[in-house]
């Protein structure tokens, strides 16, 4: 099928060079988180949650496919979604480091999901008004899905936090261990700034305030405490990852790396 919408940015070479890694950030975050969620299939605490996590993974991988295809077109070197997903090494991935963190227990998975869902809500909502028509279309589509992902993760956050002493302790523990990875979510770097100036991406500064208010309110209801913000060295969106991404890619890419070009 042909995709008719073209990016207005493509004529501008310098902008295109920033657009490629920007789109990869969105694509890789969805792809890596989708791959992580897939590890739950057959292991979730209840059948409904097993199906729920698998459905989230499916949506995220669908979003990643649309975004990776577009990234490949922007790059213009003939790489398609599969080449970008299966044949890049860890330092070339631009996902949020939070997305690659191991599943841990169910509370870790839920807290990670809730944090990223909240980020995606802000980013996709902002992108629906993007000057880049293709990104705006993908974001409008993804936003519908992210809304029910957020209902799922925030619903569980509340049940775990305001639940038993055990579930509360585990949810707090998950928040304490994952919070350090959230700095990069709304801290703009040069690429984020250039995308915002070109009207392609929303300003992260404004989104940060909304996000913090929302999660602050939900954490209070869930009787959980927001940890202190400390600077941290992992900026996945700039290619600086934790060791976990390499292991995840080892499994995800194994088949294409061992049998290049294999299909079924």
């Amino acid at each position: 099928m042909s995709a008719p919408a073209a990016a207005p940015a493509r004529g501008d070479r310098a902008l295109g060079e920033a657009l490629f890694p920007y789109v990869l950030r969105l694509a890789d975050t969805s792809l890596v988180l989708g791959q992580r969620l897939g590890e739950w299939i057959g292991h979730a605490p209840a059948l409904e949650e097993d199906l729920g996590l698998a459905n989230l993974a499916l949506d995220l991988i669908g979003q990643a496919r649309l975004l990776l295809t577009y990234a490949g077109e922007i790059e213009g070197r003939g790489r398609d979604e599969d080449a970008l997903a299966y044949l890049r090494d860890a330092p070339e991935f631009r996902n949020l480091a939070l997305a690659e963190q191991p599943n841990g227990d169910f509370a870790h998975t839920i807290v990670r999901q809730w944090l990223i869902d909240g980020w995606q809500l802000e980013v996709y909502e902002g992108l629906t008004g993007s000057a880049d028509m293709r990104l705006a279309a993908i974001a409008a589509k993804a936003l519908k899905e992210t809304r029910y992902h957020y209902r799922f993760s925030s619903g569980w956050l509340l049940r775990l936090g305001d639940g038993t002493a055990e579930s509360q302790a585990r949810a707090q523990q998950a928040l304490d261990s994952l919070w350090r990875f959230t700095e990069e979510l709304f801290a703009p770097d040069e690429i984020d700034e250039r995308m915002a100036e070109a009207g392609i991406a929303p300003r992260l500064g404004a989104a940060a305030g909304r996000w913090e208010r929302r999660i602050g309110q939900e954490l209070r209801t869930a009787t959980l405490t927001l940890p202190e913000r400390r600077p941290h060295p992992w900026y996945g969106k700039c290619g600086v990852h934790t060791e976990h991404l390499g292991h995840l890619l080892g499994e995800m890419q194994h088949l294409q790396r061992t049998y290049p070009g294999v299909s079924w």
Partner: peptide
């Protein structure tokens, strides 16, 4: 005939 993928407006 050409088959085209339409993303916008998103399906409801």
């Amino acid at each position: 005939a050409l088959l085209e993928e339409v993303l916008s407006p998103p399906w409801t």
